[in-house]
Write a protein that binds this DNA or RNA. Structure first.
Length: 581
RNA sequence: GCCAGAAUAGCUCAGGGGUAGAGCAACGCUCUCGUAAAGCGUAGGUCGUGAGUUCAAAUCUCACUUCUGGCUCCA
C-alpha cells in the first residue's frame, strides 16, 4: 500500500473512532450535545457540551464502552438527506443545526449512522467497526475548547484520543510520547541545571543558570561572528521608551494589549519595549542618508517584553521576556531582491549550523487590509518567492496571510522527533517607515522611503534554546555543550596526573571539569553520563605513565590510551566542525 | 483570558481531620577503588498564599498565585 493510501486509511479509522467515542459518551450522557469530531495527526478528538465536567476516570469508562461498540460489529451507513430532514433529525443538537444551516445550498448533506448513533458527517468512514481494532486506540486527555475556536462562544469539553491499525503501532506511538516527555526542555533544563523561572519573581521570565548561560554565550559568539561575516553592524538600544515611540509606531493603537503597562515618571509614560524596530529607526533618523549609504544591516540581540496571556506561557517556548536575534535592513528598491536572497541564505546557514537540516518555508502574501502601495507589495513578494526558489526550498503559500504591514517568509525546522518549530522570519514593513517618515536621498535628488525588512534567524534565544534542548535531548554537540570534558581519576592516587590533564585542557580553552569528589570512579562516570557530558576521561596508572587519556564517550563507546595531545586536537576539530562528538 | 487538573524537603514522589514520610541530592565520618550508584550517620518542610468550617486543618470549603494539558492568542 502506498503511503498516501495508508494515511487515508488511518484518517478513516481515526474519524470513525471519533464517532464511536461520541456514541459512547452519549450512552453516559444521553442529554449531551455533540459538536465536531475530526481525525487529526496521530488520532482524533470530539467536542461535547455535557452536563458536568469530565474526569480522568470517565476516560476508562468511555474506552470500555467504545470497545463494546466496536465488538458489536456495527456498519457505518451513509445516507443523503435534505436540509429539512437533516434539521429535523438533529433538532436536539444545536451545534449540528448551526453547521447544517451553514452548509452551502445544493451540496449533499450526508449522515453516517452506526446503529443507534447518527452523525452529520461528510465522511468517509470505514465500512464497519470490524475494521477498527479495540486494542489499538487510547483516550489521552480531556481539554477545553471553544465552539468553533471562538473565545466568545461556549467552552466545550474535548476528548483527545490516538488510534492505529494495530496494537503494535499504538505501543510505538505511546513510546514516542514517553520519549517526548524525557526530552521535555523543562525537565532537561532542571536536570542539567540550565535555567529556571520563579513564581515569586514573575511568570514567563527566564533565569539562565551558569550552564545554560554557557550555551547561550556559545550561541551568541557564533551569531556575532556570522553577522560580522555577513555585513551586519551591531546596535544596542534601551529596554524602555516613552509613549511617543509607540504612538508613532502605532503599537499603542493595535498592540497595546500585548504590552506591559506603562510606567509613569517625570510626567511621561514609559513602556518596556515589545519590539526593537522603533529604536533602530531612531538611529536611522539621527542622520540624513544618501542612496549611497544603503543598505544598512543593523542587528541587535534585543530583549523585549510582551504581555502573553497567562494560560499561554510554556517553559522557554512562550515567555514574557525574551531576546530576539533581531536585525533590520534598510535599503533601496533595487537592493531588495539581493538583500532578501542574502538574508534567506544566511538564515539557512545558521539553522543548519545548529543541526536543523529539514527546513520548510512559508510565504505569506498581502491581506485584504494592508498598508502600502500594491506595487511595493508585489516587488516584496516576488523577491521573497525568488529567494525561496533560488534556494530550492519546499514552500507553502498562505495567500492573504501576511501582516497588514508587509509580506513575509517564515522558516520552520523539523527537530529530531519530527516536530516542526517556526524559527526564522523575514518580514517587510511598509508601515513604520511611513509613520516615522523615514527617507533617503536618491540619485535624482528626491527624498524617498527606504524599504524596511525585519528579520530574526533564531527567533528568540529563549525559544531557540528550548527547541535545541529538545532536539538534542540535552546531549548537545561539543561546541555547545556546557561541560565538554569531565576528568575522572580512577582513584585519589592519580589525582596529580588528572590535575595535569585538567590544566592542559583548560589552557586549550575547553569547558572542562575535574571530578575530585569522594565518589568512586563508577559513580563519577554515572554522574557525568547523567549530565550528558560528551567526553569522559578516565585517568589511572596506565594513562599517567603514557601521558595519555582513556576516553569514554557519552554514547558508551570507549577508546583507551589516546595520547593527550591527540585528544586535544580531536576536541578542537569537533568544536571547529560543530560535530556531535 | 477560558475549560480541566495539580501544588507535600533542592529533585522524584507516598501519605492524609488528631504534632510530617521514603529514595536521590546536601553535609559529616569511614573506605582508596579501572568504565553507569561503596558503607554508616546528620540535617532539612507553617504540606503554594490568604481566609473560612472545626475542639483540632497539610487533609474539608472558598478566593488567589503558579504550574500542567488544551482552547484562544502569537499585529
Amino acid at each position: 500500500m502506498s503511503k498516501d493510501n495508508k494515511d487515508e486509511k488511518l484518517q478513516m479509522i481515526r474519524h470513525s473512532m471519533a464517532h464511536v467515542m461520541a456514541e459512547a459518551v452519549l450512552q453516559i450522557f444521553p442529554e449531551g450535545k455533540v459538536a465536531i469530531g475530526p481525525a487529526i495527526d496521530n488520532g482524533f478528538y470530539y467536542d461535547f457540551d455535557l452536563p458536568r465536567s469530565l474526569k480522568e476516570d470517565d476516560l476508562e469508562d468511555i474506552s470500555q464502552r467504545m470497545q463494546a461498540i466496536i465488538k458489536e460489529g456495527r456498519t457505518f451507513e451513509r445516507s443523503v438527506v435534505s436540509r429539512d430532514e437533516a434539521l429535523n433529525q438533529f433538532k436536539d443538537q444545536p451545534y449540528k443545526v448551526e453547521l447544517i444551516k451553514e452548509l452551502p445550498e445544493g451540496e449533499d448533506i450526508s449522515v453516517y449512522s452506526q446503529g443507534e448513533f447518527a452523525d452529520l458527517c461528510r465522511g468517509p468512514h470505514v465500512e464497519g467497526t470490524n475494521k477498527l481494532n479495540a486494542q489499538s486506540f487510547k483516550l489521552l486527555s480531556i481539554a477545553g475548547a471553544y465552539w468553533r475556536g471562538d473565545e466568545k462562544r461556549p467552552m466545550l469539553q474535548r476528548i483527545y484520543g490516538t488510534a492505529w491499525t494495530n496494537p503494535k503501532d499504538l505501543r510505538m506511538y505511546l513510546q514516542q510520547l514517553e520519549e517526548l516527555e524525557k526530552r521535555d526542555h523543562r525537565k532537561v533544563g532542571r536536570e542539567l541545571d540550565l535555567f529556571s523561572t520563579h513564581e515569586e519573581a514573575g511568570p514567563g521570565l527566564v533565569y539562565w543558570h551558569p550552564k545554560g548561560a554557557r550555551i547561550r554565550v556559545a550561541i551568541e559568539d557564533f551569531w556575532r561572528e556570522e553577522h560580522r561575516n555577513n555585513g551586519y553592524e551591531f546596535l544596542f538600544t534601551p529596554h524602555v521608551g516613552k509613549s511617543w515611540l509607540w504612538e508613532t509606531s502605532g503599537h499603542l493603537d493595535f498592540y497595546a494589549e500585548g504590552m506591559y503597562p506603562e510606567m509613569v515618571m517625570d510626567k511621561a509614560n514609559y513602556y518596556a519595549k515589545p519590539m526593537n524596530c522603533p529604536f533602530h529607526i531612531m538611529i536611522y533618523k539621527t542622520n540624513k542618508h544618501s542612496y549611497r549609504d544603503l543598505p544598512f544591516r543593523w542587528a541587535e540581540l534585543g530583549t523585549v517584553y510582551r504581555y502573553e496571556k497567562s494560560g499561554t506561557l510554556h517553559g522557554l517556548m512562550r515567555v514574557r521576556g525574551f531576546t530576539q536575534d533581531d536585525a533590520h535592513i534598510f535599503c533601496t528598491p533595487d537592493q531588495v531582491e539581493d538583500e532578501i536572497l542574502e538574508v534567506l541564505r544566511f538564515s539557512l546557514h545558521m539553522l543548519r549550523s545548529f543541526g536543523f537540516t529539514d527546513i520548510q518555508a512559508y510565504l505569506s502574501t498581502m491581506p485584504e487590509k494592508a498598508v502600502g502601495d500594491p506595487a511595493q507589495w508585489t516587488l516584496a513578494e516576488e523577491s521573497l518567492r525568488k529567494a525561496i526558489e533560488a534556494e530550492g526550498l519546499e514552500y507553502d503559500v498562505d495567500e492573504g496571510g501576511g501582516a497588514f504591514y508587509g509580506p513575509k517568509i517564515d522558516l520552520k525546522v523539523k527537530d529530531a522527533l519530527g516536530r516542526s518549530w517556526q524559527l526564522s522570519t523575514v518580514q517587510f514593513d511598509f508601515n513604520e517607515p511611513e509613520r516615522f517618515k523615514m527617507s533617503f536621498t536618491d540619485r535624482d535628488g528626491e527624498e524617498k522611503r527606504p524599504y524596511m525588512i525585519h528579520r530574526a534567524l533564531l527567533g528568540s534565544l529563549e525559544r531557540f534554546f528550548g527547541v535545541l534542548i529538545e532536539h538534542y535531548g540535552g546531549a548537545f554537540p561539543v561546541w555547545l555543550a556546557p561541560m565538554q570534558i569531565m576528568v575522572i581519576p580512577v582513584a585519589p592516587a592519580f589525582e596529580e596526573y588528572a590535575e595535569k590533564v585538567y590544566s592542559r585542557l583548560k589552557k586549550a580553552g575547553f569547558r572542562v571539569e575535574f571530578d575530585d569528589s569522594d565518589d568512586r570512579m563508577n559513580a563519577k562516570i554515572r554522574n557525568a553520563q547523567a549530565q550528558k557530558i560528551p567526553y569522559m576521561l578516565i585517568l589511572g596508572e596506565k594513562e599517567a605513565e603514557a601521558e595519555a587519556v582513556s576516553l569514554r564517550l557519552r554514547n558508551g563507546k570507549q577508546e583507551n590510551g589516546i595520547p593527550l595531545e591527540d585528544f586535544v586536537a580531536r576536541v578542537e576539530k569537533a568544536v571547529q566542525e560543530k560535530a556531535d562528538l
